[in-house]
């Protein structure tokens, strides 16, 4: 077997193993909590007979380990099961809600990352001096503020006080109801909240990386060639500072997906976070596990993508990866 195939195989095996652990953990944690979906469906006044009926219909009357094996078996054939709560196949639900989240988070990431790059560049070039320090203070402040507070402030100013934008509340997950323009208006505040958080934390990393690169010997060489600071930042430093940044981005993005739970819930935006939240509340574990799995898979894909992007940027890694 060629070495690259062996590497690829071991990567895939590791990924599969971590996904399996994730599924198992979520499955048992969800089942350990008292109550159960039957109560969630029938309400707290449910009669034992009714609960039994529901449990039978949902396949919850067999021992836990059998439910687990059945679930695993279904997973292996890519069947995620049926949502107790919304009475739809989990796969359908996830696709529908994920599309919303995807739009919302990718917009936030694009806006946030672009801002982070610009801010980080300025900060890195003036590290330990005034624009840099001011930016640093802003980053720390934003970082220390909980996202619900940021969201709340934005709502207070732009929705409640100024009345420019809606505070949230798209009820139809298909997004057909309010029409595209209204949909876009509904997106502004959630996107602003997340972009702000993304920009604050990512710009710090990028700023640091730029500052570190500026200390390197090759920058001194570049200055000795007569290049100015702008040329050096653009032509020499940016690319090298991007490499650690991209690794970080790969790790950070899935966490961001998970982090969108809070923001989506606050703005009542029907995305994956919203789905995860409600599934957890109602102990709708097929949906719960489905969402968790998706986030796990995204983490792994994100890491892999970062590795590949880095290899493309760095000729030293490139030859090593290909060799």
């Amino acid at each position: 077997m060629p070495p690259w195939a062996r590497t690829a195989l071991s990567r895939i095996a590791t990924a599969a193993l971590s996904l399996w652990i994730l599924v198992t953990l979520t499955f048992f944690l969800a089942h350990l909590t008292p109550g159960g979906p039957a109560y969630a469906i029938l309400g707290m006044r449910a009669t034992p007979v009714g609960v039994n009926q529901v449990n039978m219909r949902l396949g919850l009357d067999v021992p836990l380990w059998m439910q687990y094996l059945t679930y695993l078996g279904h997973l292996c054939t890519l069947r995620l099961g049926y949502s107790f709560l919304l009475n739809q196949p989990v796969a359908h639900l996830i696709v529908m809600y994920a599309a919303n989240t995807l739009l919302f988070t990718s917009l936030s990431i694009v806006v946030g990352t672009l801002a982070a790059l610009a801010i980080g560049m300025v900060q890195g070039a003036s590290w330990n001096r005034w624009p840099g320090r001011l930016i640093g203070a802003w980053q720390l402040a934003t970082y220390a503020t909980p996202s619900f507070f940021i969201a709340g402030m934005l709502v207070l100013v732009f929705a409640s006080t100024l009345g420019w934008l809606p505070a949230g509340g798209i009820t139809d997950a298909h997004m057909t109801e309010p029409g595209p323009l209204s949909y876009a208006r509904h997106l502004v505040l959630p996107v602003a909240t997340v972009s702000l958080i993304v920009a604050a934390s990512l710009s710090r990393y990028f700023g640091q990386s730029v500052a570190e690169e500026l200390e390197r010997d090759y920058v001194r060489t570049a200055r000795a060639k007569g290049l100015g600071l702008r040329d050096i930042l653009r032509g020499e430093v940016a690319r090298n500072a991007l490499r650690p940044f991209i690794t970080l981005l790969g790790l950070y993005l899935p966490a961001l997906f998970a982090g969108s739970v809070v923001v989506e819930t606050i703005f009542d935006f029907p995305g994956l976070g919203w789905l995860l939240w409600h599934a957890a509340l109602q102990q709708d574990y097929p949906t719960l596990i489905g969402v968790v799995l998706l986030i796990g898979a995204l983490t792994i894909v994100g890491n892999l993508a970062a590795e590949l992007a880095n290899a493309a940027l760095d000729p030293r890694l490139r030859s090593r990866t290909l060799a």
Partner: peptide, 20 residues
């Protein structure tokens, strides 16, 4: 710099940009 006066440093690896 680099036009009328050239400069060479001690460590030839770190003095060159690795990604250009």
């Amino acid at each position: 710099r680099g036009g009328r006066i050239g400069m060479v440093f001690q460590n030839p690896l770190s003095a060159l940009n690795p990604t250009r």
